[in-house]
Amino acid sequence: MITIGTDGSKDITTPLSDADVESLKAGDRVRITGVLYTARDAAHGRLMPLIERGEKLPIDVRGQIIYYTGPSPARPGEIVGSIGPTTASRMDKYTPALLKLGLKGTIGKGYRGQAVKDALKQHKGVYFGAIGGAGAVLSRFVKKLEIVAHADLGTEAIRRLEVENFPAIVVNDCHGNDLYQEGMKAYAR
């Protein structure tokens, strides 16, 4: 579900529907409340063979958002340590297959490849940017964390986060727009 806040930011509550995704445009500032699943290189490496064999995944990705991150350990009494995004393009190899299964969003930083952009259009998905290197600030939006799969991977395990008002920006929407290209064009001198 998406509503528009008084400051112009869009408030997103997970899970996301196709209509939600279609209403998002590159450059939109969003605040996400609900569930995010964390997965990065090693976790995607474990999911892929399951997808190829048509087996059940440890998480139901339909309508969900995957956050590309490997948090630092929590101090005693804290929910999580630092938790900013990692470079998304390393997951490009895996993303179209997950979008095909119904994944609606990914959060990371940096460029996506053309195959991912095409898959966002085809399967109605969105790629959000979170501020890379702002892991301390971003940790404050995480209200709950549990490891749901592949605990042996340590920081790379799949975690289920409950977040409130997690700030992000739409980088690639399902209409083919790209914030990085538009932003660069607007400010190149």
């Binding site: 490997g70 630092s72 630092s82 990692t86 890379g132 290197g133 892991g135």
Partner: peptide, 23 residues
Amino acid sequence: VLQILKDNAQMARTKLIPYCQDT
């Protein structure tokens, strides 16, 4: 973004949370 990065530096120092999760 720049303002958030400044806040992030402050939070890292005062709350002892690493500036970036990639340490």
